[in-house]
Design a protein around this nucleic acid. Structure first.
Lengths: 245, 245
DNA sequence: GACTAAACTAACTAGGTCGTACATTGTGCC
DNA sequence: GGCACAATGTACGACCTAGTTAGTTTAGTC
């Protein structure tokens, strides 16, 4: 294990960057725990961290390069040095958001559970996960405002789809095999439904709350929406004979 | 069943200004069909029209006052004359979007139909309606990015909630009374579910399509999603004994 | 037809915003 | 220790953008 204190002293402030350390950095940290005046990897990550926050908060056109630079331990010069231009930085922040969330998704473990229960847990997990990663939701909203044009340019994006679909497809297939779920559904479309319900809960909470004069972010309300969402999906998939109530 | 294609074709023209003519304008147009050099109401509406397009396309910070002014029949000065500042113009565009959509919603007629069918039609209508009003969806997305802060300032907003909820509540109550629907649900939360599924279809189509390498805007795909959505909601509400399959 | 208020125009300003030029320092390598 | 290059700091410039100033034109009224 690394010495957290020396890392902080070396300039790694608030963030939880331990897992993102590059090999080069590990080597150097081990060899020379003292403060470093040049730290390309750390600088790059620091910029990306701040930029992700700013873009998620203000959008592509709303975010200010100067503001990002000011909040950085580095300078504007370094933003252009590492990311080329504002759009390059935005794209990196977007990819960063997707990558983090996909990594977090690996935490879900539903293997071996009965299909209906497994599906329910998958929905709960997605609901909670979206709720916890508002920054990601906001980046996706922003990217959709831009009609996905930056995602288009991204090469990293190709490898992202598999995991989520594979898992839901596996659970669904088991459910069908066991005669619990209805046949003939498309896992991608099922994932679409789950995503819609869970995403909306975060993305549209502000306007929905204001228009209906009710705080949809309140814990009890959230818990109700969560239960509704699980029930909606499970009832959609489960065969009528297997349903209670 | 509704014809999805014709609905699509019907909605997307440049914009239907006729219905928005004020009484003053109708009078003047009738009296003096020639070009008028002063036309406050027309100028105001023309600005609002263009501004709505620009804000929906580019967001609040992305839209340019100069660009709006240039596309207008009027000038930048008049934007400030009528709307105060950029944010005032944005708020008017936002209110404009909500107003239009709410007016459109009045077209749904499901009275007297069996509850399950009525609910299904309500969902279909919402699905199609959202699909046809992408500009509105985008404005809502943008406003959510701003955490609903402009909606907060709006006084027009208070009267908006009633209609949509009343209608779904009425259908739901009938269904419960007839023993077709499950008891104890909250109409607002039901509306939330319907909105989530229908909204997402428009709002996240771009990123979803790109990530899963499938065009979710294609007519057949859209028709499938539409059927899924109806089924999801109806199955959620309907009592198990009344369900087929 | 003189007067007034509303409607409108063109040109301008102050400051914001992205991006760069140029100089300097640190690092790995032989 | 000196070289080559990567990393960084400072300062600035060109253009953009929201908002304004100062004035003109039009419509209605008496």
């Amino acid at each position: 294990m690394y010495d957290l204190v020396s890392l902080v002293n070396a300039g790694f402030g608030d963030m939880d960057d331990l897992q993102q350390m590059s090999d080069a950095e590990k080597r150097q940290t081990a060899r020379r725990p003292a403060a470093r005046s040049q730290d390309p990897d750390g600088t790059r990550r620091n910029i990306l961290e701040i930029a992700s926050e700013e873009f998620a908060l203000n959008g592509l056109s709303g975010a200010r390069v100067d503001e990002i630079a000011a909040r950085t331990r580095s300078s504007k010069r370094m933003i252009y040095y590492y990311f080329g231009d504002k759009e390059g930085l935005y794209l990196s922040a977007l990819e960063n958001a997707y990558r983090r969330v996909r990594e977090g998704e690996a935490a879900l473990d539903i293997e071996g559970r009965p299909p209906a229960e497994a599906l329910g847990r998958l929905v709960e997990f997605t609901f909670d996960h979206h709720h916890q990663h508002e920054e990601f939701i906001r980046m996706v909203m922003i990217e959709n405002i831009h009609k996905g044009q930056y995602l288009d340019r991204s090469e990293m994006i190709r490898g992202l789809n598999a995991t989520a679909i594979d898992r839901i497809a596996e659970v669904y297939a088991r459910g069908v095999a066991e005669g619990v779920f209805r046949d003939g559904m498309d896992p991608v479309e099922l994932h679409w439904q789950v995503s819609a319900l869970c995403f909306f809960n975060v993305s549209n909470r502000a306007t929905f709350s204001k228009i209906f004069g009710r705080d949809f972010g309140a814990p009890e309300q959230l818990e109700r929406l969560r239960r509704n969402t699980v029930e909606t999906i499970v009832r959609y998939v489960t065969r009528a004979e297997r349903l209670a109530g």
